[in-house]
């Protein structure tokens, strides 16, 4: 049990996909205009990550070496399309906000990366834990980035205005702000966790 817990916590800090492994940068930058968007994108990725990790750990022993990448991609794409259906049906507004970046989870290097590096060598349960850990790490970083950008850019937290007045520093909601915030958060992460 302890080892499984460690798999989950590793994903949060030591193997944090955003700040340490630098994977999945595109959705990280594009969808974090507010905390809630970042959180939703993270959860969507988490969903695909856990399910595809489990499925791949099951089928890995019978998949021939030379076609393993296409097979994995098909499996991942299936879960992504499933996610698209579910979001369209039950959270259509969020589906529209995240837009292109939902189908693009297919090419998120985190998902294929975990399949290659972990799921094809481990059992179903471990793979699920690994997916959960990395997914949570991704969700946390996205939410933090969204929080910072929303706070600076719009003066609100999860849509609640806390500064008063309408205007934040607009720059942080726009494209350059995404890079700027990410850069400084990386610096902070380095200062705190890397010696």
């Amino acid at each position: 049990m302890a080892s499984k817990l460690k798999l989950i916590t590793d994903g949060l800090v030591k193997n944090n996909p955003t700040f340490v492994l630098l994977l999945g940068m595109c959705p990280t930058l594009a969808t974090t205009t507010s905390a809630i968007n970042g959180l939703s994108m993270g959860l969507a990725t988490l969903f695909v990550l856990v399910l595809s990790n489990m499925a791949i750990s099951l089928i890995a022993p019978v998949v021939p070496d030379k076609v393993h990448i296409p097979v994995y991609i098909v499996v991942i794409a299936t879960f992504v399309t499933l996610l698209q259906f579910i979001m369209q049906a039950y959270t259509p507004a969020m589906y529209e906000t995240l837009g292109l970046f939902i189908p693009l989870i297919v090419v998120n290097c985190i998902v294929l990366g975990r399949a290659e590096a972990f799921a094809n060598k481990h059992g179903v349960l471990e793979s699920a834990c690994d997916g959960l850990g990395v997914g949570l790490g991704f969700t946390c970083s996205l939410t933090v980035l969204g929080l910072v950008r929303e706070l600076l850019g719009a003066g609100s937290l999860f849509g609640h205005n806390i500064i008063g007045g309408n205007d934040g520093m607009l720059l942080f909601v726009l494209a350059p702000g995404a890079f700027l915030c990410l850069g400084y958060l990386m610096v902070l992460f380095n200062k705190l966790f890397k010696k």
């Binding site: 089928i59 998949v63 021939p64 070496d65 076609v67 393993h68 296409p70 097979v71 094809n120």
Partner: peptide, 19 residues
């Protein structure tokens, strides 16, 4: 871990997965 590749099992596995 992964199975050895030959034409039959490559086509078979990829085909079955897609299906």
């Amino acid at each position: 871990m992964a199975a050895k590749s030959n034409l039959t099992n490559m086509v078979l596995v990829l085909g079955v997965t897609c299906l």
